[in-house]
Each structure stands twice: as C-alpha cells, then as structure tokens.
Design a binder for these strands. Structure first.
Lengths: 341, 341
DNA sequence: GATGCTTACCCAATCGATTGGGTTGTTGGA
DNA sequence: TCCAACAACCCAATCGATTGGGTAAGCATC
C-alpha cells in the first residue's frame, strides 16, 4: 500500500536491491520473469525474499524507464469517431478489459471522422510511442491506412473493415440479410433503407446485405429507397423525412443501419401520423441497451460489441507478437420486437 | 513526415545534434523553450537551424525519456463509471480537447461504480505515472478520495461533487429547482421523482433541489414519491413501475434525474396506457442529443457537459501548477418540449 | 588433479532527454 | 590594457529498468 520511501520518492529497483544487499539486475530478473526463476538468475530463496519485499514496499516498476530501454510501452492507442457513439463506447469497454488482461493500457481519442483529426490524433498517439493502434474510424478509401502501413505502424481495425487489412467486425452483410429475411417473411414488399455514411463499411455492408438478399427473394428496391445519412438520431429523422416526402405510397417498413438513426426515424414517422409497428415497421442495428426499453420497443440486429472490441485487442496482440492475422467477423442475431411484429 | 533515420530508428536529439555539429543539450534547450532562446543557450541563427532540421527530420521527443528525467508525464488519468453513459462520454470529449490544448494526453478507464474497480483502475493509472487524476465516479462517502489525498495524488472531480474536494459540475440543485418551478407553473400538484443512485451527488442534488423548491412553493412530496434507481433506461422503467403500481391516483408528472431513466419511464407509462405529455408529464436531465429527437420530444435540463469536462481539466492544470482551486458549478437551463408542454 | 558444468549472482552499458555547472571567445568600459 | 560581463556553447551526471556478458564457488566426472 505504501509506495513511498522515507524521503518521499517512489520505490525503485535499486532501493529493493540495496535493502537486500543484492544487485538491481538480479532483482529485475526475478520480478521480470513469472514465478519461475529466470535463466537461473537467483536461488528460490532469494527470489522469495525479493518478491516479498517488493510487495511489502509496494514496488511498482517505472514504465518510462522500462519503455525507454525496451522500446515498448505496453500501450495500445485507440481511435474512434466519437465515444459519444454508444456503439464505440461499448466496444471500447471490451477493448479496455481485454487489454488489461494482457497487461496493456489503452489510450482513446475521438477523430470525429475527420481526416485532418485522424492524422493529428494518430500522430499524438505515435508521439506517445504506443505499441500499436486500434482504428475504429476507418474510411473505405483507406488513405489513412496506407500511410500507417508505410510508416510500419502495427494496427488493426475495429467495427469498420477495409478490405486487405486485419479487422474485428460484426458480419454486417449477414446482419442486413437477417433483416431482409425478417421483413420479407412479414409480408412487406415496399421497403426503404436508411443507409448511414457511405464511407463506413458498417453502413455499406449492412445495406448491401439487405438489398442483395431482398432482390434474391424477388423484391425490388428502387434507387431512391436507399437514403444515406448520418448515424445519429437527427440524421435518421432527416432521412426518414426524405423517404416519406419522396415516395407514394409510403413504404411499409424501414431498415435503419443504426439504432439511433432508427429512433430518429420513429420520431419522423410519428410526426407524419404513422404508428410504428402498425403502419410502418422499423428495424435498427446493434441492439443498443435503449432498443428494448423504448416506448415502442425496437427490433434490432444484435451485434456482439464487447466481443468485437475484445477480438480487436487479441488481433493486435498477435500482430505485435509477429504473427500474421486475418480479418474476423462475428455473427449477429436478430431481435424482433414490437416495432416490426 | 519522415521520422526515421537511415537505419530505421526514430530520430533523437543526439541525431540532430550530430548532424549540426553541436551538443545535444543545446538542441534540447532550443527546442524546449518556446521561440525565445532560453537563457542565452544559443544564437538566433543556431536556434533557427535546429528548429528547421527538427521539422525536416520529423523529430518527436521521446516522452519516456523526458518523463524519466523530469518525473512528469503530461498525462491526465480519467476515471468514469462507464463511457457508455453518454453524459460521461461527452464530458470526456471536453476533457480530451482541453487537455490537448494544454499539451496533455488523457487516459480513461471505466470503474462501473464499483469500489474494487475504482481502486484497481486508480492503481493502474498511478503505475503509469499520470500527473493527476480526473475522477468522474466519486461516491458521496468519499473513501476513495481520502485515500488519494493521503497518497498526495493531485486530482479533481468531474460531474459529481463531494464537499471539500475541488470539482467541476453542473449546478444540479439549481437544475432541480428549474424543474420544480416549471412543473408547478404548469399546474401539477401530484408529482414523483426518479432519483438516481443515492451515492452520486448528481442524483442527490437534483432531487434535493427539486423537492426543496417544491415544498417552498407549497407542494407536498410524500416519501414514497421519491424512488432511487439506476441511471439507465432499465432503471428508469423499473422506478416508474414502482411509482405507478404504488400510488393512487397516478402522479401527473415525473422528474427523472437523467434522460435515459426518463426514456425508460416513458416506456413504462406507455405500457400502462398513459400518454406522455397528456396524461403524465415527464422531464429528464442533461438534454442529451436524444431528448429532442424522441418520438415524443423530452423536456430536459440542459447541462453544459462539454464545458464541465473542459473546466475539470483547467482545474487540474491549476492544481498541478501549485494553485489552490475551488469547486466550480456551471449553470444549467431548462428546455421545455412536448413531454411536459 | 584438471576440466567442465551448474548455480547464483555481479558489472556496466544502454535507452533519450534534461539540467546544473562549466568553458571558451568577444566586447565594452574603466 | 585589463577585467568584467555576456553570448554561445559543451560536459557529464542523472532518471530507473534491462540485458549481454562476465565470475566465483561448488560439485561431478574422468
């Protein structure tokens, strides 16, 4: 508990060594290597004494010093569009957890999906000498990623994927298909999609999964029934307005690639005097904690957000260990609720 | 742009010094001290050459080395209950921004409001040698804080306050009062409060502000009309259920100290066949981006979340500079919408 | 009795930046 | 002409942990 010496400094390896009358390097080797005495560095008895004293003095190694020497910080940098996006916040919780289990700490920054900010934040992270990056704001054009590759920075993607780079994502194409199957089986034939931002694979894949499956079921989706939008509530509302004012007859079902957009859409429907779940079905994506608790519970594709975050960390770890890693897609499931029942 | 030497290492002070034929210490002094040449360390011409070369080679100082020597990391640790709480996520955005402006980086961790986790995360942060902490999960009993004080760790609170410690919060008492005035003036006389977690000052202050003002207006609030709950949607729903099954007649207005709890309550009301804004008014707190966009737009007390985060950083900075700082409360405003109009 | 192998350590350089205390060379003033 | 003052640098120790290379003692083997 106390981690301070008499003169107010924190305890160092040398302090421990002096107190025991042995050399700091010996202490380092003992504390460094699991519980097995490393390379015959010390006797079992000495190792025990060292570990006891370290515990008693509350020794905690100085990461700057260690990092300076080893050139590794055990730090992972995480860049997300914004943590105020619940989906990313939850993935980050998974990331934090999994990283801690591996002895890494994480650093997050918000890029607002702005290329300029992405660069700046990446630079800050690298200036802090993170061992690797977890990128949650990848754009499909992939220019940031090419640069990272050129700089030989180890990184993996999370949430959004870009072909050719390692990533941990939801199987968004499958998610879209699940929604198509569901709405088709409920008898809908006139549907529209609130498609999200076209630079994000989440949006594109979910939309493509839906549209392709819909067409293979024999359905038709005119070009104007797919409306790109921001991922937030306001974006969903605007997109729904576009759909409702542009089309006659109204579609009987809406698929929003994001729960928040779906909530915005529900608001717009209500403003038009339409009842969600009766006049128009709505399905969202991610099954955020809100979905089930809304006044009209929202059908949504549940994606394993925590696991996606955890997986990203494991991929990055393996990358740092020199392995070659492949993209991972985790399987979503559909939760049907009142909004589309 | 390039930050690599021929042999693949990153550029160091010594590299720059060698290339210019001067001593590393001189380079350090030049780069270290703003644009004015420090203590006559070098001629203006040399300073110019050094800065040019540093830029050209993409020199970025190694923070481990600097930190090792100076014992400062320019790192602020941030502990929050959970980033998936939108309110904290937005405050963190403010924190990140303000910290970056001051040349600090930030580190966040989730404690889930669990004392055990709070300790663990605090220890991890201190092991990383952060210069100070921003605590977003303070409990009113203040035991964690006493320990931090004993350890002489510089810290400030954010979002929640605890008497006797520096903090940046919303004036939650005032917020509660605003709601009381509003509902009273709308003619309500039978109200209930979804009060949040009793260990959080946000919950306690908002509730107290409301109840005290209500009583001074001449209203009555029986003990069972104040229901403590979790801050999330499910918590709000449960609390509303308790209120609705326990009381006859139903209250005509609900004040939830958190927007998400309010949303949950709206769901419960609907399940009971009550229409929000007609049969029962609902007011939330924080005015998160969702509030205005809900199918039935939610009245809410707007708190300056970004500014609260920014203020916390400024307080911590002043603390680190040796100043003594006082708690700061930022003023909220009420946004009336359909749910209570 | 010499050689070789363990065991249990020690030594010293190293990572990159910082900083208190020099050391030159030049200029101005007395 | 001499000294003080200054400008413009250099030197070397230091922060704390890591790590490649010792070494000395003890034992077994041939």
């Amino acid at each position: 508990m106390k981690e301070i010496t008499a003169d107010g400094r924190t305890v160092t390896l040398k302090d421990l060594a002096n107190e025991l009358g042995i050399h700091p390097s010996t202490v380092s080797r003992i504390l460094h290597s699991g519980s097995d005495v490393a390379r015959g560095a010390a006797s079992v008895a000495t190792a025990e004494r060292v570990r006891d004293l370290a515990r008693k003095r509350g020794y905690s190694p100085n990461p700057q010093a260690a990092g300076l020497r080893t050139r590794r910080t055990r730090l992972m940098g995480v860049i997300v569009p914004r943590l105020s996006d619940l989906v990313l916040a939850i993935m980050y919780e998974g990331i934090e957890e999994a990283a801690a289990e591996l002895g890494y700490s994480t650093f997050v920054m918000n890029s607002r999906d702005d290329p300029e900010e992405q660069r700046r934040k990446t630079d800050t992270m690298l200036a802090r000498r993170v061992d690797g990056l977890i990128i949650g704001d990848a754009h499909l054009d992939g220019s940031q990623l090419r640069e990272l590759t050129a700089r030989k920075v180890p990184f993996v993607l999370v949430n959004r994927r870009v072909p050719g780079y390692p990533s941990a994502t939801c199987d968004d194409v499958l998610g879209g298909q699940l929604v198509a199957d569901h709405l088709w089986s409920k008898g809908h034939r006139n549907v529209a999609v609130i498609a999200g931002e076209p630079y994000a694979s989440t949006a594109v894949d979910r939309t493509a999964g839906f549209v392709d499956r819909w067409q293979s079921l024999g359905g038709k989706i005119p070009r104007e029934a797919v409306v790109w939008s921001r991922f937030d509530t306001a974006g969903g509302r605007e997109a729904a307005e576009t759909i409702l004012t542009g089309r006659n007859p109204y579609p009987t079902a809406l698929f929003a690639v994001n729960d928040f957009a779906a909530i915005g859409a529900m608001g717009a429907l209500r403003s038009h005097g339409l009842t969600v779940g009766e006049d128009v079905s709505v399905v969202g994506f991610n099954d955020t904690s809100l979905a089930a608790e809304l006044p009209i519970p929202l059908s949504s594709v549940r994606s394993p957000m925590l696991d996606i975050g955890r997986t990203a960390v494991q991929l990055l770890k393996r990358l740092l260990d020199g392995e070659i890693v492949e993209p991972v897609r985790l399987e979503p499931t559909l939760c049907v609720r009142e909004s589309s029942a």
